[in-house]
Simulated assay, not measured.
Amino acid sequence: MSTLHSTERFSDRVADYVRHRPDYPTAMLDWLHREHGVTPDWRVADVGAGTGISSKLLLDAGHAVTAVEPNAAMREAAVAWLGGNPRFRAVDGRANATGLPDASVDLVTVAQAFHWFDPVTTRREFARILRPGLLAAIFWNSRRLVGTPFLEGYEALLQRHGTDYTSVAERYADDDSMRSWFGAGWRGTARFEHKQLLDFDGLRGRLMSSSYAPKEGHPQHEPMLAELRELFRRCQQDGRISFDYDTRIIVGTLQL
């Protein structure tokens, strides 16, 4: 595992993150509203909000959103993008120390960041800031590793060139461990298909938004990009590749 602290890993990747990271399917939020009684007037704490991709989804659905993000560069990018919306604010905070008042939000969301959190102290903090009996929703885009020549070639590329790819990948929770984290408060799980259609510049930016992709100057950087270009050449159709995901969401209540 890299020694770089998790809150700092993306500071030099913000531009690529803003432009090339995937959003989340609106069908997922429709499911949360339809199946779990969430309504647009619910106040949301979007924890580990990064550059605001998940916050934008929630704002578009009518929610008031407080983005909690410890990385200053990512938080500033979120404010630059979403700060004109009166229902949005961003605060400097962590998953286990949000700085939000007790029982001040109706929904806590975490998108793509839970694997960086300490599960015990995070659970305690989420239970503290949630109104009693209301919900936390953990969701993430899970990149498909097999199924097409591109997906399998991209995974092999990361295995060969990623600086700490294996150790980061091992941090991701599976559905069973997340259900265990909620315990008796678990309320539901769902999956949704999602994808990005990327030209080569988009694919390169998507790769370089990952914390384990070696940056310019690293001995693996140029070989990695050469391999990426060849993979794109072999797999592209009409100048694009399909970068495929399963978006997974787990919802439940939390108690102190």
Rank of each mutant, 00 (worst) to 15 (best):
W181F: 09
A80F: 07
H194N: 11
D106K: 05
M208W: 10
T51R: 08
W186G: 06
D46W: 03
L130S: 05
H20L: 08
W186C: 10
K215A: 15
M1I: 14
N71W: 00
H36Y: 09
M224A: 02
V44W: 08
I53H: 11
S55A: 11
R143L: 02
A78E: 00
R179I: 14
R206A: 15
F117N: 00
L157Y: 02
L254G: 11
A15K: 06
T7F: 11
A78D: 08
L134G: 13
R248S: 03
R19G: 12
G183Q: 06
L151V: 01
R9K: 07
W140A: 04
D199A: 04
A169I: 05
R9W: 12
V44T: 07
T7E: 07
R34G: 15
W181L: 00
Q196R: 05
L197K: 05
Y172N: 11
R19W: 12
L29C: 07
F150W: 00
L59V: 12
P214I: 13
P119A: 11
A137V: 05
L135T: 05
Y154D: 05
F182V: 12
A77Y: 02
L228E: 00
L151A: 03
G185I: 12
E222A: 08
H33P: 08
C235N: 11
A73D: 15
M74W: 07
L197N: 04
N141E: 13
G133W: 01
R229I: 14
L231Y: 09
